[in-house]
Design a protein around this nucleic acid. Structure first.
Lengths: 207, 207
DNA sequence: GGATTGTGAGCGAGCGCTCGGTCAGAATGA
DNA sequence: TCATTCTGACCGAGCGCTCGCTCACAATCC
């Protein structure tokens, strides 16, 4: 019984496992977004991934495993997007606004995926829910680093560690807000409007 | 086929319907919070409500109906809590901080319930999801009114309608954030800490 | 005694998951 | 090189079971 990313598997060839996991995740993400986790059947996932139901269970021990793979892949993509954006926006006076902008654009692009995590994390078995929440903390941590950098370079007035931490969480969540209030916000604001207003709001305390 | 709150019913006596609906909601809320909507069975709900499974379906046409009753009851209680708090905090210079404080305390008290709405609204049939989202807008509207009052009385600098609207949403969501990031935040902040920091944050732009 | 409300055994669609089996191709042997 | 053996990815019918919902009947009320 092998295991990649902690998922137990019957298959011996690890590169095959990785490839199949990719197929499974790609198929499952779309189904979960459209129908939700509970209303999606393992047979649907298998079919969409181009596998038989039997083969599916060679690569995965339970339906929850698939949800974990999906959540993990989403977080990995968000983190990649955010990290890249932070590098691009690094340094300088206006860089917090720039960082917020890039992050919010990631949220806009991955709206459905982020929403999925909000809705289905609870369906994960405890040990994997824990891992998913750790991912969330790590992504928030990126904003912490940006804020620390700006404070220590004098581009931002001094803030206590705790209010900086909370500010990092606020930025995270205000990005998510665009995803889970999209049904309202998108009727009144473009993403550019939203970025503009929220940047003013966030920079209020830091001006 | 009668209907209370849009829920079709077999029972003719409307006060009985109301009473039974109350029993059902009280039972279901706890079960949904502890196990989630999908993992809770109608039989569990019936038993916890002190009804037979047959009777349950005299008062409700589907399991989704129960979820709707639950969501609606939660929103009603939140709205009641918020409205009362707003009255208590009405008028005066410091009243926005006071309003935020009271609202965040409501969120703290109803943490599990608010989280439930975030997680399970998607499981509602479209026409009821719509109603639940309208409730959310209405509650946010209360903050709009508070902000408008403060601006027009000169207690707050002038803000455009749109940034005032977004600010109302931000206050709503930052309250919710305490519920859905509680697993992290509560390890680092008391609710009073949280209120203090977030009030500073929100008032930043308005100072 | 008719109308209303309550009951719970029963139904059957549908679910996650298993497991005996197939077969292409790699490994082995002479 | 060809025959034999072994490997392991792949398959899908079907098992065991759950769960939302129904309905024929009983109890209760006025």
């Amino acid at each position: 019984m092998r295991a990649t990313k902690g998922i137990p598997t019957q298959i011996k060839n690890p590169v095959l496992v990785e490839q199949r996991h990719l197929q499974i995740v790609d198929a499952a993400v779309q189904l979960f977004i459209n129908q939700g986790f509970h209303k999606t059947t393992t047979r649907q996932i298998a079919r969409a991934a181009g596998l038989s139901i039997g083969s599916l269970y060679e690569y995965v021990a339970s339906k929850e495993d698939i949800l974990y793979l999906v959540c993990d892949a989403i977080h990995a993509e968000v983190e990649r997007g955010v990290s890249e954006a932070m590098e691009r926006a690094a340094g300088g006076r206006k860089s917090l606004a720039e960082a917020i902008r890039e992050y919010f654009l990631v949220c806009n692009r991955m709206s459905d995926h982020i929403l999925l995590i909000y809705q289905e994390t609870q369906s994960l078995p405890p040990q994997w829910r824990k891992k998913v929440l750790e991912n969330e903390v790590r992504i928030t941590g990126i904003f912490m680093e940006v804020l620390e950098g700006l404070v220590s370079s004098g581009d931002l007035p001094h803030l206590s560690d705790r209010s900086m931490e909370l500010m990092a969480h606020n930025i995270s969540v205000l990005g998510h807000m665009w995803t889970f209030r999209r049904w309202f916000l998108a009727r009144h604001y473009s993403i550019e409007d939203y970025i503009k207003f929220q940047t003013e709001f966030i920079l209020g305390i830091a001006k």
